[in-house]
């Protein structure tokens, strides 16, 4: 194995609406950069094989597994982490509020990933059927809730967001 450390990657991207610049090593994942370098620990690390979705963040609006997604890939892109969902006035995003209202989490470890995955769904398909919610969310695991409250929360968030659009 070579001990020479490969060249650092200069990363510039938009994170939660603000430009960030950070250097990272090529093998570092987006979750490592978010959690260790930028101190945003909302993305959780669990399965590390792209099955559970706890580490989900949005890149250009699409959900990716940040635990196995190279930070290098975020160059010039728009990254949304759970920390970016609250509004400037500290009110919660409707999906966040509906997760609270519907008791859609217990331990909370899957929750940031669940909420971001749900956001990707509702941004793309504002009025999903239950089947569409389940199909989209099927790659996010939760061991606490039995999923039913999460489906309810997403359904309710869709309704709240629809009403807000008028």
């Amino acid at each position: 194995m070579s001990n020479a450390k490969p060249a650092l990657v200069e990363l510039r991207f938009e994170l939660n609406g603000k430009d960030v610049a950070v250097e990272c090593e090529p093998q570092q994942t987006l979750s490592e950069v978010l959690r260790n370098r930028l101190n945003l620990t909302g993305a959780k690390i669990s399965c590390e094989v792209q099955v559970c979705g706890a580490c989900t963040v949005l890149v250009d609006g699409l959900p990716v597994s940040s635990c196995t997604y190279l930070a290098y890939e975020a160059r010039g892109r728009r990254v949304t982490s759970i920390e970016g969902l609250e509004n400037a006035d500290r009110t919660l995003h409707p999906i966040q509020q509906c997760f609270i209202d519907e008791f859609a989490f217990q331990c909370g470890f899957c929750t940031p990933g669940m909420i971001l995955s749900a956001k990707a769904l509702l941004d793309d398909n504002p009025e999903p059927t239950d089947d569409e919610i389940i199909h989209h969310m099927d790659g996010n695991l939760c061991r606490c809730t039995g999923y039913v409250p999460i489906v309810k929360a997403i359904r309710k968030a869709a309704a709240v967001m629809k009403e807000a659009r008028g």
């Binding site: 959900p63 990716v64 597994s65 995955s117």
Partner: peptide, 12 residues
Amino acid sequence: EAEVANVRVRAA
């Protein structure tokens, strides 16, 4: 393609 793995794998 809509059924490959999960939504994150399909995105990347």
